[in-house]
């Protein structure tokens, strides 16, 4: 895919910003030994509330969920930033964000104990970040700026 300079800068900036966000969120959880998603899950709302409460109420499942969440965030963030397997990382990120969205959907009539940082109706920042990852999936840039460029070349050299 050919990009103009403006398009390329825009896409890479978007990739880096989201990667930055995921990586930092993940690492903070990894490095904080006491972190757990329990309270967040207990505060969930909407149609999937029972599912998230079930996770929170089951020690083993909760620990696995926590472990998966923190490392998935970190890894996805790393891949987006570094520019490697970006399409897979984008799909993984969209999956996580979709879970966050359905656990706390900004639907009318649902109230959360934990306050939100703005006013939302149907659309919130989680959903927008999800859409942004979709763009990254559709417009790959890692072969131009990113580790993929190096690996591709090294791999192709022998041919």
């Amino acid at each position: 895919m050919e990009y103009s300079k403006t398009k390329l800068v825009t896409l890479i900036l978007l990739r880096w910003l989201i990667g930055w966000h995921f990586f930092y969120e993940g690492m903070v959880k990894v490095l904080n030994s006491g972190w757990s998603s329990k309270m967040y899950l207990l505060d969930s709302g909407g149609f999937a509330k029972p599912f998230f409460e079930w996770i929170a109420g089951n020690e083993t499942i909760l620990n696995l969920t926590d472990l998966f969440n923190m490392w998935a965030l970190t890894l996805i963030g790393f891949l987006l930033l570094a520019g490697f397997w970006v399409r897979i990382a984008s799909i993984g990120g969209m999956f996580l964000l979709a879970l966050y969205f359905i656990s706390h959907p900004p639907f009318p009539g649902i109230e959360y104990i934990f306050p939100s940082d703005g006013s939302y109706f149907l659309v919130n920042k989680t959903l927008i970040e999800l859409a942004a990852l979709w763009i990254l999936f559709a417009f790959p840039t890692a072969h131009i700026f990113g580790l993929e460029r190096i690996f591709k070349k090294s791999f192709n050299r022998g041919k």
């Binding site: 890479i12 570094a82 520019g83 700026f145 990113g146 580790l147 050299r157």
Partner: peptide
Amino acid sequence: KKLNRRDIIKGLAA
């Protein structure tokens, strides 16, 4: 086809 300096810089930009 060879890995050049430009590739390295762009590859490790992050």
